[in-house]
């Protein structure tokens, strides 16, 4: 249905935003790309009093590599993530995630900050942020703080963001030459949220030994799930068929998926195991893939 009657404020600076929050208090709702928020208005799933449009605030824009940190402004749109040369080079997992996110017209509006703040457990970017060990730069009228993506997601559509606080940027360690990454998911139709997905990041040395594995699953819990046991099963091992089997087995202890519209928990466990095997197989040397 049509959106409810609502207010609108165009913030051109952070000061404009803080001012709008002071004026409207809890009724103020930040509007970035709006690709989820505006649909929830149509469904009356949310009824904020005033939309505060932050898309013209320059501090929240841009992608830059500075002092060994890749900083992705919160307003960076999905389509921009997919074609940015710095992201392609230093965070290829994020570029690889883009084609899975909704459809081209939505990718032209939706933002990385919005996706992380909304925290859909089946969305790609929250899982990528956890897998890449991202740090989120948060701003409010009271000041700034930095939190790890890993602890940022606290439950279904829930995060550490406090009232009045926004995500300003996502900060990532640039990918090392040894980094391997992949994102895979299963969904019924192209562009749908995943029934199950994996964002896999690890390092492989010249001998094929795994370091710093961060396999992260989405669509299988109330938030992105860092597969601690599967990662422990991989760390320090040479990546081969036996190591992959061990990780798949250890994964059982990492997942406690809820039943949802797609099917029962055991189906999600099955999909997660299959995706883990497929993702890790991509990192095997060519001769083992052939075997």
């Amino acid at each position: 249905m049509k959106w409810p009657a609502i207010g609108y404020v165009r913030a051109r600076s952070l000061d404009d935003l803080w001012e709008a929050q002071r004026t409207h208090g809890a009724a103020a709702q930040v509007l970035a790309g709006g690709q989820t928020l505006l649909a929830t208005l149509a469904f009356r799933l949310s009824e904020p009093g005033v939309l505060v449009d932050i898309t013209r605030i320059p501090e929240l824009r841009g992608v830059a590599l500075r002092d060994g940190v890749l900083r992705i402004g919160a307003l960076t749109r999905h389509a921009e993530l997919g074609r940015d040369p710095l992201i392609a080079r230093h965070a290829p997992l994020i570029a690889a995630a883009v084609p899975y996110i909704a459809h081209p017209a939505i990718r032209n509006r939706g933002t990385i900050g919005g996706s992380l703040a909304y925290a859909d457990p089946a969305a790609e970017l929250p899982a990528c942020a956890v897998a890449l060990d991202a740090t989120l730069h948060l701003l409010s009228a009271r000041g700034e703080r930095r939190v790890k993506a890993e602890g940022f997601f606290t439950g279904l559509l829930s995060t550490l963001l406090e009232p009045g606080e926004i995500i300003a940027a996502v900060e990532l360690p640039p990918a090392s030459p040894a980094q391997r990454s992949a994102i895979l998911e299963v969904s019924r139709r192209s562009g749908d949220y995943a029934m199950a997905g994996i964002a896999a990041v690890l390092e492989l040395d010249a001998a094929g030994q795994v370091a710093s594995p961060r396999l992260t699953f989405f669509g299988v819990g109330d938030r992105p799930v860092l597969a601690t046991r599967a990662n422990a099963a991989l760390a320090g091992r040479v990546l081969d068929a036996a190591a992959i089997a061990a990780a798949a087995e250890a994964l059982e202890g990492d997942l406690d998926p809820p039943a949802d519209l797609h099917g029962p928990p055991e189906m999600k466990r099955h999909l997660a195991r299959v995706l883990l095997r497929r993702a890790l197989a991509q990192f095997l040397p060519a001769r083992e893939k052939a075997a």
């Binding site: 609108y8 709006g34 505006l38 649909a39 939309l51 939505i106 032209n108 509006r109």
Partner: peptide, 16 residues
């Protein structure tokens, strides 16, 4: 199209 790129018109406030 908005600014040269396709969008969902129903998910863009005219006010913006």
């Amino acid at each position: 199209r908005v600014d040269g790129e396709i969008v969902r018109g129903c998910l863009v406030p005219a006010a913006s």
